[in-house]
Design a protein around this nucleic acid. Structure first.
Length: 439
RNA sequence: CGGGGCGUAGCUCAGCCUGGUAGAGCGCCAGCUUUGGGAGCUGGAAGUCGGAGGUUCGAAUCCUCUCGCCCCGACCA
């Protein structure tokens, strides 16, 4: 993509409404624009990141045996009356009425709808287990949206729902998602610590939140300091095997959210305890029959008896992750994208757009990059060098390639790694090989 | 929902106290000169001062109401 034609509205200064770094950088780098409180448009650059995150989440869900479907954003109130949540949910639920005066709502979550789909279509124990998920926009009418996409009213969430015959099966489904989440966040370049969590209004009695430690986080959390030096699982998982040992390994070190931590009776010595702020990027719940029983989601057992499905639900805040990744990976100059979610793999700067030799060399390198399968953003604008360097640092692509009179004279291109800041001169071929190695 | 703050050009802000009909820097457009870490000069475009009502000869400025946004707290993927 040539920057001269790309829609990338960069801001030189920090908008006053943005207080935390991820919000500022998302606005400045032209990723998002606010439409009203807690509701954002995703511009091309931001959407690229959102889609990359979404695809990693999807890939890991599929590997763990979950099946993707897509449920609507608008739901009928009746289903929520069945579960009893139509009255319980309160003002956070956006309620609307259609032209026939029917009560509808913009879905804040999908337990009711998925349970309805399940009960209409699954009738036999032979069809279990099932884990169904979708990645869809949700709306929660937060009293106080803030921090950009970190706490928006409209947000993109992956929510999965498991159905099992019994507690052992539900436990197994829970463990699969637990491990899938560890892998997902690791692939996103994040250290997300699984913490014992309160189940809240969703219900159930087994739950973990996945937390990224960050000063700007909204959650107060407590964990063993050893987590700081622990690399989270990224190896392959055999989902058909016994997952309980994995679960035990990744919950052996203490970690709990504020609601689950008893400050007066900490289970680990104060010297080992880290009290910190964190960003919740995912949460998983064992639900039991909280929804399946009132909504009569039952299957026939081997002896013809009616068995109420055991459920679990598993959420990842996809749009929130965009902000969380930036919170975890930036410096004073701007964003530093992990390679796995970078909107472009590399940025190419032609330092002297008015110079024919420099432009010819940069054009050639750009063509070679595309041919090599490297998604590059080519700054071919007639701007001064400083402007281009600053813009490239701001938008945080993992690699920067610089072509200009100086490098041309030496017959090289300059390759800069955004994260380390290291610069190296090399031939165009060597540069392409270097970049391909990271794909 | 309690407490606080802010709405003036695309962005950051000044002007408001003490009323006289709107400014700066950056950005944008044109031209020239520049060119390795947010260049210089010249010229130009751009704001019904969030909205409504009131006071006044006259309101960005004073008064009332209202809408929007942000921050702290309580609540939450």
């Amino acid at each position: 993509m040539r920057l001269s034609t790309y829609f990338l509205p960069l801001l030189r200064e920090n908008p006053t409404e943005a207080q935390i770094v991820s919000h500022r950088l998302m606005l400045r780098s032209g990723m998002i624009r606010q439409s009203s409180a807690g509701i954002y448009s995703w511009l091309p650059f931001g959407l690229r990141v959102l889609r990359k995150i979404e695809n990693i989440v999807r890939d890991e869900q599929n590997r763990a045996g979950a099946q993707e479907l897509l449920m609507p954003t608008i739901q009928p109130a009746e289903l929520w009356r069945e579960s009893g949540r139509y009255d319980d949910y309160g003002d956070e639920m956006l309620r609307i009425r259609d032209r026939h005066e029917r009560d509808m709502l913009y879905g804040p979550t999908n337990e009711e709808l998925i349970t309805d789909i399940f009960r209409q279509n699954i009738k036999s124990y032979r069809d279990l287990p099932k884990n169904l998920y979708h990645i869809q926009w949700k709306f929660r009418d937060e009293v106080r949206p803030r921090f950009g996409v970190m706490r928006g009213r409209e947000f993109l969430m992956k929510d999965a729902y498991s159905f099992d015959l019994d507690l052992a099966g539900a436990r197994r489904s829970y463990n699969k998602m637990f491990l899938a989440y560890l892998r997902t966040f690791a692939r996103l370049g994040l250290k997300a610590i699984p913490m014992r969590a309160d189940t809240g209004p969703i219900g159930g009695d087994l739950s973990h939140e996945f937390i990224i430690l960050a000063d700007t986080g909204e959650s107060q959390v407590y964990c063993d300091k050893a987590w700081l030096n622990t690399d989270i699982l990224s190896s392959n998982v055999e989902y058909d095997g016994d997952l309980q040992p994995f679960f035990q390994r990744w919950t052996a070190l203490y970690a709990a959210t504020e609601e689950k931590h008893d400050v007066a009776n900490s289970p680990i010595p104060a010297a080992d305890l880290l009290a910190a702020r964190g960003i919740e990027v995912g949460q998983i719940f064992y639900l039991g029959t909280k929804y399946s029983r009132p909504m009569n989601a039952v299957v026939a057992g081997p002896d013809g008896e009616q068995i109420v499905a055991e459920m679990g639900c598993y959420g990842i805040g996809v749009s929130r992750l965009t902000g969380a990744i930036i919170e975890a990976s930036h410096d004073d100059s701007g964003i530093i994208w992990p390679e796995s979610v970078a909107p472009f793999h590399a940025g190419l700067i032609n330092l002297r757009a008015g110079d024919s030799a420099s432009t010819a060399a940069a054009d050639g390198l750009y063509a070679a990059l595309l041919k090599a399968g490297i998604d590059a953003l080519y700054d071919d604008r007639a701007e001064s060098p400083g402007v281009k360097f600053a813009a490239m640092d701001l938008i945080g692509l993992p690699w920067q390639l610089v072509v200009g009179p100086r490098s041309l004279q030496r017959g090289v291109v300059e390759v800069k790694n955004r994260r380390s800041g290291q610069r190296e001169d090399m031939t165009a071929e060597a540069a392409i090989n270097r970049l391909r190695a990271g794909l």
